[in-house]
């Protein structure tokens, strides 16, 4: 039986539909990555699972127990590390952990033992008795992780745990999470970083506009695409007109699809080819039309390609698009509950 079952979740914020029929299953012991652009409904999904939000309709089962009917039972099984790291700046890290232990009704000796272990495992000894207002981003995130682990939950839920962290802190968090998962802890993590989900998770789902659009292991998803990604540059720095012209030209070729002009890469062209045989034909076609080829490279597909294939846009484009549509004020109100 999967540890978590989300069934047909629907949630709207006013006129904006955050989740439309989202269903997910999270197997026991898995490291589950939830990948999607900002505003795709990741946070909403996690907040519903952690009983902070009620869905308009749908079911949430944790260990077979209905989370909407018995939220209190579910709460003690989940450790939730929210996206916005809210820390009482005037308390020390240790005091925050003690508060958490008491809110989860740990006995005092056990609570202190847990705190000791966590300080050791997360290497917080040097600063845990300082007021948390003085902590760096990485320290805060580690402390937050510790609060989520305090009561030894069955499931650790992390909402974008490394956003805004420097590379070193991110690596620390990554290795901590890997170790936890190796020790048997089920972890659900949301992220809009492809490499994060690719690196950490053994199961993943891509969500877009409040729906699951692809699900499986990262390797499966990439292999299932059954094609390679190609980046083509006709000049080192091209322009939009030229890019579009080349796009029109190569779109007509067989065995080649999803052509995108990538503005961020000097108007290079990104597309998929079913087999490598397409490339020589492409070369000769372009030469005929008077285009020189500055660079052409073929690579295995990435998760971004999986996303592109299912939605017709890149993760980056999706984020920009959604950023304009969101009613952040309304969402803040909801999250303030």
């Amino acid at each position: 039986m999967p540890l978590v079952v989300l069934q047909n979740l629907v949630k709207s914020y006013g006129p904006i539909k955050a989740l439309s029929n989202l269903s997910l299953e999270i197997p026991q012991g898995s490291f589950f990555g939830l990948l999607g652009p900002n505003g795709s409904g990741k946070s909403t999904t996690l907040r519903i699972l952690c009983t902070l939000l009620e869905p308009d309709s749908g079911e949430v089962l944790v260990n077979g127990e209905n989370a909407l009917k018995n939220p209190r039972n579910i709460r003690s099984k989940i450790g939730y590390v929210a996206q916005e790291v809210a820390i009482d700046k005037i308390l020390t890290g240790r005091e925050l952990l003690q508060l958490h232990g008491d809110l989860y009704h740990l006995r005092k000796e056990y609570r202190e033992q847990r705190i000791k272990n966590l300080i050791e495992n997360l290497e917080m000894n040097d600063w845990i008795d300082r007021r948390s207002g003085s902590y760096s981003g990485g320290m805060r995130r580690r402390l937050d992780l510790a609060t989520g682990l305090m009561h030894e939950p069955d499931l650790l839920v992390l909402d974008e745990p490394t956003v805004g962290l420097d590379i070193e802190s991110r690596a620390t968090i990554w290795s901590l999470l890997k170790e936890l998962n190796k020790g048997g802890k089920t972890i659900l993590l949301s992220s809009h970083y492809l490499e994060e989900v690719d690196e950490l998770s053994d199961q993943m789902a891509i969500i877009d506009a409040g729906r699951v659009i692809a699900q499986g292991t990262p390797d499966e998803l990439k292999k299932n695409l059954g094609c390679n990604r190609v980046t083509l540059k006709v000049r080192e720095f091209s322009n939009e007109i030229e890019g579009e012209k080349v796009k029109e030209l190569i779109k007509k070729l067989d065995g080649l699809h999803n052509v995108v002009v990538n503005r961020a890469q000097g108007y290079s062209l990104n597309f998929f080819v079913d087999t490598s045989d397409t490339l020589p034909i492409l070369r000769s076609q372009l030469n005929e039309q008077g285009f020189e080829i500055f660079a052409i490279s073929e690579s295995r597909p990435t998760l971004d390609d999986v996303y592109l294939q299912s939605t017709g846009k890149t993760l980056m484009d999706a984020e920009l698009e959604v950023a304009n549509k969101r009613d952040l004020k309304k969402e803040a109100k909801q999250s303030m509950r």
Binding site: C50, N73, E84, L103, H105, M336
Partner: peptide, 14 residues
């Protein structure tokens, strides 16, 4: 509520 600290209390099994 505004800083999100209340969420810590609300996800706890009080």
């Amino acid at each position: 509520r505004e800083f999100g600290f209340l969420n810590r209390l609300l996800v706890a099994p009080l």
